[in-house]
Design a protein around this nucleic acid. Sequence first.
RNA 1: GGCCACGUGGCGGAGUGGUUACGCAGCGGACUGCAAAUCCGUGUACGGGGGUUCGAUUCCCUCCGUGGCCUCCA
Length: 461
Amino acid sequence: MELRLYNTLTRAKDPLRPFDPHNVRMYVCGPTVYDHAHIGNARPVIVFDVLYRLLRRLYGTGHVTYVRNITDVDDKINARAAERGISIRDLTEETYRWFREDTAALGCLRPDVEPRATEHIAEMRTLIESLVASGHAYVAEEHVLFHVPSMPDYGALSRRPLDEMVAGARVDVAPYKRDPTDFVLWKPSPDGVPGWPSPCGIATPGRPGWHIECSAMSWRHLGETFDIHGGGIDLVFPHHENEIAQSRCAFQTGVMAQVWMHNGFLMLEGEKMSKSLGNFVTIRELLDEWPGEVLRLAMLSTHYRQPINWTRQGLGFAAKTLDKWYRIVGDAEAETGPDNPFESEIAERLADDLNAPSAITHLHHLAEVAEQEDDPALRRRFKGAANLLGLLDGTDSAWRTSQKAAVALDEASIAALIAERLAARKARDFKRADQIREELASKGIALMDNKDGTTSWEVSR
RNA sequence: GGCCACGUGGCGGAGUGGUUACGCAGCGGACUGCAAAUCCGUGUACGGGGGUUCGAUUCCCUCCGUGGCCUCCA
């Protein structure tokens, strides 16, 4: 099975040819930990989790290294810590813990390494000094700047000619820059701002620029070159462009990562998500209302490179689908591994540039097969196939229980009402029976009269 | 202004140079006291205009619309 991935560098679906198939290496830009992650932040987390699962399926679980960094040095962090009157460390630790809880609820595996920027200052200094030594960077007014014209093919990722960048710039250029496009590798820390000993003989303590940390952490944990680099499409320029410049110039390599992958943007009910519009939703807020698996399926229903419109309706669809699928798999154990043909069929679809919507379509088909043939093996295979997308990891019982936990009414009262309705039906008092059914329906509870004369219920949205 | 994406049936959303996925909703039927769930069946599409082609939703051009990025802001 050939894995083909859309590469922003070449603007084409390229077959993945890992440097070392025994250790496929992937780096994804992680969160800046100063506040709860919003649903837009969840997109790359889920998308690259699917890719991670697929890579492990194709190359073997022990043959993939997935690194996702934690940015714990940033002006927004400083501002928020000051605002809340807590230490920077407390803020970043607390926010990181939230992030871990949120992403676990979304069914995402932990990356192999989650490096923190503040623990890689030494690597950053090494990179910066090497860039200065090779003439790609210079010191100016206690800053260290990367000199963009020193790299002839700068801009290859975003395909942005240098002269146009200058022409289009709408920000005042700092006077100490040799070239308007030069960007900061290291900057001085004023009093009260976290600082570390500066490189290049600069006396004042300083802190890293925005981009150098990813070059440092990917170098430390994956090496000078690696296979896949991912992140949101908004990071293409300048962040990833600058990472490439730093790493390639520091290590004198032709590439930093072979494949650059970018997920599309997320809109909320048709509008750009922004705090000012008041339509800003955190993962946590959504998890209060929906199982994480619903969010995951809704997210994967749109191809990762397409813009996604995040809607309540979409969540409802996802919930309904999972209801159906869990009913089919019941509490069966998943069959996983290459011997499961269903799983291979899903892998095949994902291998085409992570076409999750196509995989989901196929799951609908497999669900039908599993449901119609009364063969437990097929249900186990169906479940294993869904597992590759990180779906149907639980059991039907657990799913129903979690759904019922969200209902405002306690189970005993529901049971009492059902008993009363059954009695009314027996007495052919259908008016009263329907009245009870409507009462429960208004509370989001759907009744089902079974063939054997019993009545069961489930949550409907 | 520059660069880059995207525009598919009522909604969501894949895909393809020629036989029009899939899900939800709708409609018809079975089941039911009536429903729900389930099962069976079923209709509807490829932003506008040019071009290439025997043939385009699929390739090219253009227009319109939407969105993103344009340097320290994930």
